Amino acid sequence: MVNARFRGVELEESEKSDEAKRQNPTSEAEQELLHSMREAYLAENVNIENWQRLAGFGIGVTSLLIEDFLTHPFVVVRRQCMVNSSAVFYHLAPFSVCRIMVQIRRKQGLSTFWKGQGSKLAVRGINVIAEFLISEATSEQLPQEVTHSESATLSKLFGHVLGKSMSIVLTLPFYTASIAETVETEQIQMNRSPFTFVKEGIIRVISWENSSKGHGRLLPLWSLVSPTLLHGILQYIITSCLQQVILMQQRKNTSSENSPEQSMIGSYFPELMASLTSTVLTEVLLYPIETVIYRLHLQGTRTMIDDTDNGYAVVSLCTNYEGFFDCFSCIHEEEGITGFYKGFGALMLQYIVQLLVLRFTRKVYKTISQDFGDVQ
């Protein structure tokens, strides 16, 4: 609204403007044409950016699925090495792991390296569902996610970690069954349905306070809660903190690149790279704890694994640990410090493959961006 005492000035300027338009109608038409072209150009840019975001999201999800599929064989071999207390070869280097994988493939075929992948994905799904239900049941007092846009108070962060802890405990029986399915050899013919691990998880729940299957060495499930919870929470906290630090540094390095394609890459790939780097560092740091936890989970389960020394025979897991600290002490005394890092070469191969997939994904995204006309 124009103030009344300036109304005369406004009318005078309006009259001058109308007079200029009458004297030069071509100029007015040019201005209208340029205005309409600018609006169309901006709308087209917005449309291209939306398609790019959708393409980036789709490529990101696809790359994660491909990574999980391609890296699962290394997870299988790594876990078998970690739980094999009698192994002579520790497979600390990638070349050693490749050699034993070739031997296993010759004996059992290529499909043996993808055993347990379905149960591993199912456990992830159960964990996500458990987190969601806990968050909803507590009216988000124990939130499933805490973002930087929220007022991340100390109580909210504590509630978030507490919700994570509860979901880990609820998933624990199925996590145990999934580990066993991943490392169990296929040389012994067994009819396992896709939901066998669910049945075994329920059995572990029923025998929560006692050893089942008549095995005195099988640890009751409640004794596995503390070490598993410790590993899960440490893994989540360390990975999250490292990811934020690395992500901030990545964004600083890409902030000077102002092209549309570079800005879109800066929206997705720094986060993917930060997630990969933080996960690798956390896995290396917590590798000894993970070794102890796997052995405790499988003790007394009568699980037969492939012999990681020669790749042809099978080995029975015969241990008699009393708990976390006893297992840690026995590994240190009998196998040495490197005993905690059995199968470390498989971990290296796993993340090398993930890095290659990420770089390939980046290249695909650049090609798509060029098709959209962002790169001249």
Score class of each variant (00 low, 15 high):
V102R: 13
F74T: 12
I179D: 00
E67P: 04
R124H: 14
Y175W: 06
P73A: 00
Q80E: 13
V183D: 05
W114N: 15
I179W: 00
L121C: 14
L172S: 03
S207H: 12
Q189D: 06
K107Q: 05
E67L: 15
N191T: 06
A180L: 15
Q187T: 14
R105F: 10
L154E: 15
T171I: 00
G109V: 01
I168A: 05
F74K: 06
H91Y: 05
S86D: 07
I126D: 00
H72W: 14
G116I: 07
E209H: 13
V77Y: 04
L170V: 04
S193R: 03
L157I: 11
W114R: 12
R105G: 03
T185E: 02
M190F: 09
L162P: 00
F195A: 03
A93W: 05
T112K: 12
S139H: 09
W114F: 08
M190L: 09
E140M: 04
R79K: 08
L157E: 06
Q189R: 02
A137R: 03
P94F: 10
T138I: 13
V76I: 10
S139Q: 06
F95E: 07
I188C: 07
F69M: 08
Q141F: 09
T71H: 09
E150C: 03
Y175A: 11
G116Y: 04
T138F: 06
V183Y: 15
P73M: 04
S96H: 11
R79G: 00
C81F: 10
E200N: 03
S96K: 10
A137I: 08
M190I: 14
F89M: 13
F132D: 11
C98R: 08
F69W: 07
S207W: 04
I126M: 09
N127Q: 13
E209R: 15
W208I: 08
F174C: 00
R204N: 04
E67G: 13
G159W: 07
C81D: 04
N210K: 04
P194H: 09
S139E: 04
V77H: 12
G118V: 14
G201H: 15
E145G: 02
A177Y: 01
V198D: 03
P143D: 04
E145D: 05
S193M: 08
V205L: 09
M190Y: 13
T182D: 10
G201M: 14
V146G: 02
L172N: 03
E145S: 07
Q117W: 05
T71P: 13
I104S: 07
G118E: 14
P143L: 01
V83I: 12
Q141I: 02
R99K: 07
L133V: 09
I126C: 05
L172I: 03
I206Q: 06
H148K: 06
L170E: 01
F158Q: 08
G163N: 00
R106N: 04
